[in-house]
């Protein structure tokens, strides 16, 4: 009897050791894919690995990382936001017009739009609506509002925003510092604080959370508000870089943000997300998006496909690791 139980204990601990290794490997996968892309760039053009090179290549990494974090909050609650791209575009248009011309109105509009996100979260939870449908509808609303605010490309970013995005800190390029900060702050908030546990738990086992006396409406409102907040930050950062806006400027961000979350080790259901992974995923996508492929003399027509191929390879690697886990 005791022999049998010792036997099973040993087997269990060996099994769990294997599980922990697979988990570690899966956790390292985003960093590995980023390293691979960097190595490819260094091999194709060694001079790109420099302060100036990184500043240039990671130019758009900050807004992409912020949009990815926004999407990550939604995915953490087992939902999906198909409107984040047009929302970023809408915020961009408001930033380039109202926020510069009448800052108070601009701030109110942006706060109001975060409020709309909070309401969407409540609506989705209370009426048990599929978030894909609701946010797909909202994506057209944001797009329409963006066109109303800025019918044709133009506007100008506020000067303070331009100067923030043009920061040139010594030694380490600004986009890298910003990405690190975003990743660490969100990691602390979501992975370390006691309420972050509740937010992630709402994706892991909502019924259990409700039974323990937590309000699922509140967790969903908080998650969607955070998505709205980071969407606003993303739109502002984007305009700070591009200096002027266009109603369609953020359209590509929806899928980029989803891809970033998944690339960073997140899963669509079950509350399994990783803020640092998401930021790394966003960096990988930003890096792979243009410079790498231009270095490789891949025509722009094929760049999107190449980007997709990277995504498929990384996800396939993850599936292989997970299968070994079983």
């Amino acid at each position: 009897m005791t022999a049998a139980s010792i036997d099973t204990t040993a087997r269990n601990s060996a099994e769990r050791g294997a599980l922990a290794r697979a988990r570690l490997l899966r956790g390292l996968l985003p960093a590995l894919s980023l390293a691979l892309v960097l190595i490819a760039i260094a091999w194709l053009n060694p001079r790109a690995i420099s302060y100036f090179g990184f500043s240039l290549m990671l130019n758009l990494a900050i807004p992409i990382a912020l949009a990815t974090i926004a999407q990550m909050f939604v995915i953490a609650g087992n939902e999906l936001d198909l409107s984040i791209g047009t929302f970023v575009g809408f915020v961009g248009c408001v930033t380039a017009t109202w926020l510069r011309d009448a800052p108070l109105v601009g701030v109110l509009i942006l706060l109001g739009s975060i409020g709309v996100y909070a309401l969407l979260g409540a609506l989705i939870q209370l009426r048990n609506l599929p978030s894909i449908v609701v946010t797909l509808g909202m994506s057209f609303v944001w797009q329409g509002l963006a066109i109303l605010v800025l019918p044709k490309p133009g506007g100008k970013a506020p000067d303070w925003l331009l100067s923030i995005m043009a920061l040139k800190p010594p030694f380490v390029p600004f986009p890298i510092i910003a990405a690190l900060l975003i990743g660490l702050i969100v990691h602390f908030g979501l992975m370390r604080t006691s309420y972050g546990v509740i937010l992630r738990g709402s994706g892991g086992n909502p019924a259990a959370l409700g039974r323990a006396g937590w309000s699922l409406v509140k967790t969903k409102i908080v998650l969607f508000s955070l998505a709205g907040l980071f969407g606003v930050l993303s739109g502002m950062a984007l305009i700070g870089i591009t200096t002027s806006a266009d109603a369609n400027i953020g359209n590509g961000y929806t899928l980029l943000a989803i891809a970033g979350v998944i690339l960073g080790g997140g899963e669509f259901v079950g509350g399994r997300v990783s803020p640092i992974g998401a930021v790394i995923g966003a960096l990988t996508l930003a890096l792979a998006a243009s410079p790498l492929l231009t270095f490789m003399h891949i025509p722009p027509d094929w760049q999107v496909a190449a980007n997709g191929a990277i995504l498929i390879i990384v996800l396939a690697a993850r599936v292989l690791i997970s299968r070994r886990e079983r």
Binding site: S194, V197, R200, N205, L209, G270, G271
Partner: peptide, 22 residues
């Protein structure tokens, strides 16, 4: 089972104790 599979054992304990914070 009413545990959240994505959380650690300690984090799952936190879910049942509102006072475990700070």
């Amino acid at each position: 089972l009413s545990l959240c599979p994505n959380l650690s054992v300690a984090e799952n304990t936190r879910i049942n104790h509102a006072s475990l914070q700070g």
